[in-house]
């Protein structure tokens, strides 16, 4: 799964996701893409599941670009632990996604197949997504 190679600090604040995406909102590489319509934290596991679903449907033909990276550590306290005693330990890595952000792009694949693959990939994500195509 995706995660940073090294980080300066182990834990981060939770934060909130406000507003729409400012960058990464248009297709940059491929012909078809998957655009997030809701704000959410996408875990590395969810991203990997979506990536695999897309790759499987396209039969690994063409090229896929992942436009997000899970670089935010999320900590959790163990089960049945009383509150206090400091912040929990890092459990997973997430990518903060704002509405409008392109998550995946596909190129070199039949457009119909690419759309189907992206819909399958979107089903692995906890947010509503939309398939976008390049308008010349």
């Amino acid at each position: 799964m995706l995660q940073p190679k090294r980080t300066k600090f182990r834990k981060q604040f939770k934060g909130r996701i406000h507003g729409a995406a400012k960058s990464g909102t248009t297709l940059a590489y491929g012909e078809v893409g998957l655009k997030a319509m809701e704000p959410e934290r996408l875990s590395a596991r969810q991203i990997e599941a979506a990536r695999r679903a897309i790759a499987r449907h396209t039969k690994r033909a063409g090229r896929m670009w992942l436009r997000i990276f899970p670089d935010v550590p999320v900590s959790k306290k163990p089960a049945e632990v009383r509150m206090g005693s400091g912040k929990g330990s890092p459990e997973l890595w997430v990518a903060r996604v704002k509405p409008g952000r392109i998550i995946f792009e596909l190129g070199g694949v039949n457009q119909q197949v690419a759309k189907e693959a992206l819909i399958l990939g979107a089903a692995k994500l906890p947010i509503k997504c939309r398939v976008v195509t390049r308008i010349e």
């Binding site: 995660q3 940073p4 090294r6 980080t7 300066k8 600090f9 182990r10 550590p73 959790k76 163990p78 929990g88 330990s89 890092p90 459990e91 890595w93």
Partner: peptide
């Protein structure tokens, strides 16, 4: 749990 070795700064 912290020994996940993920961040390893």
């Amino acid at each position: 749990p912290a020994a996940g070795g993920k961040a390893a700064p």
